[in-house]
Design a protein around this nucleic acid. Structure first.
Length: 466
RNA sequence: GGCGACAUAGCCAAGUGGCUAAGGCAGGAGCCUGCAAAGCUCUGAUCCCCGGUUCAAAUCCGGGUGUCGCCUCCA
């Protein structure tokens, strides 16, 4: 497996810390609002990574946190009068529901900041004891000058004056780049006890503390194999995490750093402040989860992804072909997956998740299967193998999980289905009587309702249109 | 202002030194069909521009132009 490491800016051969085991930590959402398409893309990228490792026979320990202490959550508490837990529970559940709709399973471990306060405080104490952090009036800060490898992850040169001036700085901080490990609050907002006074943990510290507690291996040069997240987290979040962790433990945090690209709308980054963000739950009202999954998954995870409906429809049509093949197999019996097919798909994905290349192989398999079945419609052994191929894809990519007839009837209420099928019966009898004028008229009527008719040797079938 | 990424057919998108530049959507032609749909076959690119390196470059180097991102919470 080759993985593009943001730290070296190169593809590197993946070598696990422990044989046959992969430890992956991904920065999850701050749970103050519903998930948007960007969360989905990030989650899908690492879901694919997880599936590929599993297909290669690794035991995967996949950890994704929920940041449940944050100023935005505190603000929401003030606005609504609700408790922290009621807000974060709601959005954790909402996040999970949306991800499940996309075929993304829960992480193996899902730590939360509120459940790791002791770990966080202990971690900060160690950093102070080792003289990497210092206490001033408004909190505990990390002394960046004590880490000569600071900037080695994000490759930033020494920050220029402009950058420094942009950092909101406490005059007592030794360096504007120093970042908060613990923030002390004297107001009535939500706070937690600490040796330095009531307050809240800084953002970066939770990941370092939770990785150490939940995922790290001891006595290796690195604590975990892979650390992932959105490209916007590279600096300062991941740089700070890496810095804290190497200083606290003497070991580097992660051997490989992976960063996914953004979802863009009309060529600009989707973000709340720009007012162009798209909630996943709203998208899921319009598009089936698997269709959305396939679309968001279909281009490389590091590239930016320009979301638009036209491309989504094109992507759905591509998925339709997989389901049409599934439909025409007419059996669920399975033999062994085609070895060449499996090998080619895995080779593509093993190259830093080259999904485009993998999907090209899938499309070629679909076309050649159709070709073979056109010539040999009754070749059962062949059908079993194609079934096995589709089953392999289902586990690896999470597509083709539905019954084919269900797939083509998505979004059509049962009442409509009965009406459609009644019309099709009527058309069938008209056809038998060679009353083509009537049968074509019925077909046109259905087409106007976005229902496509197809006459096949095994009877008339229908599908929803776009 | 500093740093970085990207630029491949109408659209989406692989390929990063060497046979005919993957695959999908859209379009065109054909086979099939009562006619369609579906499926299959055929069909489209001097790889942003200008220089350079090389026997050979979409692929490496330099310079442009353009788009986007990070530097502030962010997936």
């Amino acid at each position: 497996m080759l993985i593009y490491n943001s730290q070296s800016k190169k593809k590197e051969l993946f070598i696990p810390l422990e044989e046959n085991v992969v430890r992956i930590y991904v920065c999850g959402p701050t749970v103050y609002d519903d998930a948007h398409l960007g969360h989905a893309r990030s989650a899908l990228a690492f879901d694919l990574l997880r599936r590929v490792f599993k297909a290669e026979g690794y035991r995967v320990i996949f950890v994704k946190n929920f940041t449940d202490i944050d100023d935005k959550i505190i603000n929401k508490m003030k606005e609504t009068g609700r408790s922290l837990e009621s807000i974060t529970d709601e959005f954790i559940q909402s996040y999970k529901n949306d991800m499940h709709a996309l075929g993304i399973e829960d992480a193996d471990i899902e730590p939360k900041a509120t459940k790791n306060l002791d770990n966080i405080i202990h971690y900060i104490e160690t950093l102070i004891k080792k003289d990497f952090a210092y206490v001033i009036d408004d909190g505990v800060y990390f002394d960046v000058s004590r880490d000569e490898k600071y900037f080695s992850l994000s490759h930033r040169e020494v920050a220029d004056e402009q950058t420094q001036s942009r950092v909101e700085s406490n005059s007592q901080k030794r360096d504007p780049k120093d970042f908060a490990l613990w923030k002390i609050y004297h107001d009535n907002s939500l706070t937690f006890d600490s040796p330095w006074g009531k307050g809240r943990p800084g953002w970066h510290i939770e990941c370092s503390a939770m990785i150490k507690h939940h995922l790290s291996v001891a006595d290796k040069a690195y604590q975990i194999d892979i650390h992932g997240g959105g490209a916007d987290l590279l600096f300062p979040h991941h740089e700070n995490e890496a810095c804290q962790s190497r200083c606290e433990s003497g070991h580097e945090l992660a051997r490989y750093w992976m960063h996914n690209g953004f979802v863009q709308i009309d060529g600009t980054k989707m973000s709340k402040s720009l007012g162009n963000s798209f909630f996943l739950k709203d998208a899921l009202k319009v598009y089936n989860g698997e269709v959305l999954r396939f679309y968001l998954l279909s281009s490389h995870y590091r590239a930016n992804f320009n979301f638009n409906e036209e491309d989504l429809i094109a992507s759905q049509k591509r998925l339709d072909k997989l389901y049409r093949l599934k439909k025409r197999l007419g059996t669920e019996k399975i033999s062994a997956v085609n070895k060449t097919f499996k090998k080619e798909i895995l080779e593509s994905l093993n190259d830093d998740l080259n999904i485009s290349s993998a999907l090209a192989t899938l499309d070629i398999m679909i076309a050649s299967s159709n070709e073979h079945l056109d010539a040999n419609p009754k070749d059962k052994a062949y059908k079993y193998e194609v079934n096995a191929n589709l089953d392999f894809i289902k586990a690896l990519l999470g597509i083709g999980t539905m019954d084919a007839f269900t797939y083509f009837q998505l979004g059509i209420p049962a009442k409509e289905i009965a009406k459609i099928e009644a019309l099709i019966e009527k058309r069938d009898s008209a056809k038998k009587e060679k009353n083509y004028a009537l049968s074509d008229e019925i077909r046109d009527t259905l087409l106007r309702q976005n229902i496509k008719i197809m006459d096949t040797p095994s009877g008339t079938q229908w599908e929803r249109g776009e």
